[in-house]
Design a protein around this nucleic acid. Structure first.
Length: 456
RNA sequence: GUGAUUGUAGCUCAGCUGGUUAGAGCGCCGGAUUGUGGUUCCGGAGGUCGCCGGUUCGAAACCGGUCUUUCACCCCA
């Protein structure tokens, strides 16, 4: 046998069944997006490196797949850089394109580039693969799909409310009950950092706080200390380590805690608006949870932050995330365009639905009728019937070879085809067909018209 | 990027402290059964034991490297 082929790590092939199941998720999300008034766009799978680099932090840069320049790409590179093995500088010389890392930054680029053709507020959705040079692990791949919906050109907090509803609508439709939509606000995090006098350490502070449910209060304290946040400052936020109660109660506590921070109070106000309205409107299956430890996408979120976790008991990272970014397009030269959006992690949602057995109703496209091939003359006779069935929208096919009956019947079994049509010498003579129901085993002689009616 | 972990037939896996010709189940192909499947029975094909190197009289097994799988950290969907 020749050398075994393989695929790069972190990538996957999808079988017909898997594709059907994935398409079911895609179409569900797409339907809801459109019901909410979003329109699709697509962007190239790779962008200029300059568009992507530096937008996701240092860690992000490392995880971006770079595309090697064509031609003799080393020609232009300075000898010194090569001999000193300065990888990062060399990279920027030999690679000018990169695979997209998410859909948000390319979208920002799109908005800036097409600003004159866009009607604002612009509500777009996008469902395309993204690539990250990460080490694969559970629910984490190097090629995966994101399904994003964003609104740019509006600061209205009603969008934030709508996105909570959108999440709820999609997961309800997928019958994925019990998801938790976690909500936070960057301004609150900034406010807390301000209160404890660690304004300059906002990122370190929030990244540590984010790990609360994973490493506990003690772990978080240790990490903060390690990052140079004083013990005194940490003691001020101690209440956050055991923060609970209803959303309203949490909001009231935050309001007290942040009384001295204008920004923090603004965050409380925004959250209150969202929480109040979501409570007023109600949710079908998800629950909204105010989570001050939530800190994602800090490189560009400025207001609301969302993250969706799978129902309790399913071990899976977040299956969706998003937030408000006041100045995303600013990096590409378009000021004062606020945006807010959310993302669905298709591949993780797939794993969760799979684990919970929620794919039962997803039907694999397959033929309904198989015509047994007895030879050239019979095949020609059958093909006329096949055409007629197809015109009527009945999925049907002729077995391509005049193979043994057993083999053809077995094929029908394996593919779980409902009906088999046998047309040999005697049927040709009588200008009819023998139709066999593969489940009951019953068979009957019928005309073409009857064939269509029964198998329809 | 750090630390573990995995790799034997198409698939799921056995294979003892290194010892002749590496096994099973399922699947595949053929036959019993030349126009009637799912069951049964019989037979057959298919593996340089991930790859490279080392230790040894001898390696699927031990050691090193590399790739791959899975998992955790970092970070994230």
């Amino acid at each position: 046998m020749a050398q075994k082929p393989g695929i790069p790590k972190g990538t996957r092939d999808f079988s017909p069944t898997e594709v059907a199941q994935r398409n079911y998720i895609f179409s569900t999300i797409k339907e809801v997006f459109e019901v909410f008034g979003f329109q699709p766009i697509e962007t190239p799978s790779f962008e200029n490196s300059s568009t992507l680099m530096g937008k996701y932090g240092e860690e992000g840069d490392r995880l971006i797949f770079k595309i090697l320049n064509s031609g003799d790409y080393l020609k232009k590179v300075d000898e010194g850089l090569l001999t000193n093995k300065e990888s990062i500088k060399v990279t920027s010389k030999i690679s000018e394109k990169a695979l997209r890392y998410d859909l948000t930054v390319p979208f920002a680029r799109y908005v800036v580039q097409h600003q004159n053709d866009i009607v604002f507020p612009f509500k777009r959705y996008q469902m395309q693969p993204v690539w990250r040079a990460d080490r694969p692990q559970k629910g984490r791949f190097r090629e995966f799909y994101q399904c994003d919906a964003d609104v740019v050109g509006s600061k209205g907090l009603w969008q934030e409310v709508e996105f909570v509803q959108l999440y709820d609508a999609v997961f309800s439709k997928l019958k994925l009950n019990g998801t938790t939509i976690k909500l936070n606000n960057r301004k609150i995090l900034a406010g807390i950092a301000e209160i404890i006098g660690a304004k300059d350490k906002l990122i370190d502070f929030t990244v540590a706080l984010d790990k609360l449910d994973k490493i506990g209060a003690e772990g978080v304290t240790n990490e903060m200390l390690a990052k140079g946040i004083s013990e005194e400052a940490i003691s001020k936020v101690q209440p956050l380590f055991s923060f609970n109660g209803t959303s309203q109660e949490k909001l009231n506590q935050l309001q007290d805690m942040l009384a001295q921070s204008e920004q923090g109070l603004q965050g409380v106000k925004e959250l209150r608006f969202i929480v109040d309205n979501v409570e007023e409107l109600g949710l079908q299956s998800a629950k909204l949870d105010l989570d001050v430890t939530l800190a994602r996408g800090l490189n560009y979120y400025t207001g609301a932050i969302y993250e969706v976790s799978a129902p309790e008991g399913v071990k899976m990272g977040s299956i969706g995330g998003g937030g408000r970014y006041d100045d995303l397009t600013g990096i590409f030269g378009l000021k004062d365009v606020s945006g807010v959006g959310i993302s669905f992690g298709l591949d993780r949602i797939y794993l969760v639905l799979e684990e919970l057995g929620l794919f039962d109703d997803v039907a694999l496209p397959k033929p309904k009728v198989l015509f047994i091939n007895f030879g050239e003359t019979e095949a020609a006779y059958c093909m006329k019937a096949v055409s007629a069935l197809r015109v009527n929208g009945i999925k049907s096919e002729l077995y391509p070879d005049a193979a043994k009956m057993k083999k053809q019947m077995n094929y029908a079994n394996r593919r779980q085809i409902d009906f088999v049509v046998l047309a040999g010498e005697s049927e040709l003579e009588g200008n009819n067909y023998t139709l066999k129901n593969m489940q009951s085993g019953e068979q009957q002689t019928c005309t073409l018209q009857e064939l269509i009616e029964i198998t329809k």
